[in-house]
Nucleic acid binder design. Structure first.
Lengths: 343, 343
DNA sequence: TTCTCTACTGTGAACGCTCACAGACAGCAT
DNA sequence: ATGCTGTCTGTGAGCGTTCACAGTAGAGAA
């Protein structure tokens, strides 16, 4: 492990230096670097020794220039970072994607583009070919970044169906509507009839679809839709708490709350406790996500599990396929009702 | 804004296409792209028009190949991501760095390298020249990544003085020891004499230095050092709570706690409340950081403010200077005692 | 005029790599 | 002998850019 380069910052060794050191040609070194096919054991060994001796690392710019690939993937976040960091789901998703890509030896770059200015910079960076594809984690409609990247022909996979974008963009999503239906039916099965709902933002697919599932089941069961039982949050804990306050004021007779995220559900629990309503005695509370917040809550949340491990794995699979030339695809994954103490 | 490239994914336009379209040479286009000096107004206009018409974006791989720069900076995190996401300080730091770099139009790439495997991948990625420099946010000693990057000659600036690394690595840090001294003196000025301490991990500079400041002041005041008054945490809220439990068991007569981070201090408050000790009546609690946790706590925390905005600005400044060829530098920034309700 | 200076422009080299191709050599059948 | 495989190797070209250099034209000074 003799580094000939310690101390002064000399220019790093090139493939040529390695070739000379090993007594072979550039081509042979390149072949060793890319899988080692059609290389004799002798040459293979000599090249590896030369690489160790010179401390060579391939210049990825040169490689990318000719291959057109960068062998890295971007994890793009177009929302303010607070949102991201507070939400345990994002965490799980990020880790899942990192792991799935690790199997392909591809590094994941996290890019935050919360401000308009940042969005411009990052978009330019991406369209300039610095990553081969983008995993997009932002669900707000009318996201100009997604639009732009799509038009620039950058392979893109969104988490959750992007609203307002054409059908040519890939996405992976949980079956939000079905999940919501399961939860509402579960609450009904407990004898609840005045079921309130705290939705997500209505410009996100999760916000829209989960509310739709709620309304569908109510309609099917002949229960009248009462808009006093419906408020919207922004997936944050605080907004759940505030939402529950409003619900208690508008519809004090509620006997259940279906909350569109576990984090918001935590806030709802706080508000209910303060109001002296027992859970699950007086009010049943159902969450959504099955994130770590569901287990941290007291009582633990009955919730709809989103298969985040599968979601991230699928996102990576679809993205790599698209980079490989396949057409965009949409993947919908089933959810599951998890019964715990809150309902 | 006519994109000649919509639909089929043709190969993107090169600088050559732009030159032909504008009726000038490659050189002139390149000059326009890089500041526009020594270019006639006529040519300048023609090139800009051609760029718009062709939808040209510079191929950064080609540029990087010859300039040796990538015009991007990495924000490297070598700890498990949970730690990072829970701590509000990191958030502030990240945003500060992003903003400081935005002034130079440089995108920031967040790289998570929590596992051994990821560390290898990311190190290779960095040493291959994909970023011009690295902002390192990990303070644990013996971090092999920092060592490796340093040896590879990658410009690097750490947040907090890296333990166990040579003096040739740049860092920006708050005056931890002075801050701790200020806090302990403040607690003494309130008449407290049995001052306990919850330190950070003792393989981090913050952990070591803040404890050192505590011991110094005690020694100066002729107060005996009692190791029952000292426990260590890992900067997490939970570890603060657990630490306080241990302290209460070992030294029930404590009348103040100096906690090495606000997040841990929140945990300490929880434990004290459960034990029926009033804050600040029975026990004074001092934090460290002045993070958002200090304001969120009840009572609000008296704490030592770390100037995170200046820290991030300095990190970026030092890193860019180093990339520009300057020698590594160490910057120590002063802290400030912020008095609130807890002490 | 002629010379110098400045503003501007075009033209080969690189940068370090991969890829396609051609060639060499061995083994085995014809 | 000849041909055909298959494995292995070296070479030249080219990816899209910047940079150094040489050159042109016009303005102003001698």
């Amino acid at each position: 492990m003799t580094m000939s380069n310690t101390g002064g910052r000399r220019k790093p060794p090139t493939i040529h230096d390695v070739a000379r050191e090993a007594g072979v040609s550039r081509g042979t070194v390149s072949r060793v670097l890319n899988g080692g096919h059609y290389v004799s054991p002798t040459a293979h060994e000599a090249v590896n020794a030369a690489i160790r001796k010179t401390g060579y690392v391939v210049n990825r710019h040169a490689r990318s220039l000719i291959t057109g690939r960068s062998d890295s993937i971007g994890f793009l976040l177009t929302e303010p970072q607070e949102r991201f960091f507070e939400d345990p789901n994002f965490n799980v998703l990020l880790r899942g994607c990192t792991q799935a890509l690790a199997a392909h030896d591809i590094p994941l770059l996290l890019m935050l583009a919360g401000t308009e200015d940042e969005r411009r910079r990052i978009t330019r960076y991406i369209t300039a070919g610095h990553v081969d594809g983008v995993l997009l984690v932002s669900s707000h409609s009318g996201d100009p970044v997604a639009q732009e990247l799509c038009e620039a022909g950058v392979p893109l996979v969104a988490c959750g169906k992007p609203i307002g974008l054409g059908s040519k963009v890939s996405y992976v999503a949980a079956a939000d509507r079905d999940g919501a239906r399961d939860m509402v039916r579960h609450l009904l099965s407990l004898g609840r009839r005045r079921i309130a709902v705290v939705t997500g933002p209505l410009d996100t697919p999760g916000g829209v679809e989960r509310l739709a599932g709620y309304r569908e089941v109510l309609a099917e069961e002949g229960i009248e839709y009462d808009e006093r039982l419906v408020v919207s949050g922004d997936y944050s804990r605080a907004s759940g708490e505030a939402g529950a306050e409003r619900l208690l004021a508008q519809a004090p007779d509620l006997d259940a709350v279906f909350v569109a995220s576990d984090l918001m559900a935590q806030g709802v629990l706080t508000a209910l406790e303060r109001a002296g309503r027992g859970v699950p005695g007086d009010v049943s509370v159902g969450g959504f996500d099955d994130s770590s917040a569901a287990l941290a809550a007291r009582p633990q949340l009955t919730t709809i599990r989103q298969p985040y491990d599968r979601i991230s794995a699928e996102m990576v699979r679809v993205l790599l396929a698209q980079i490989g030339g396949e057409d965009p695809a949409a993947v919908i994954l089933p959810t599951e009702l998890i019964k715990r103490g809150s309902a």
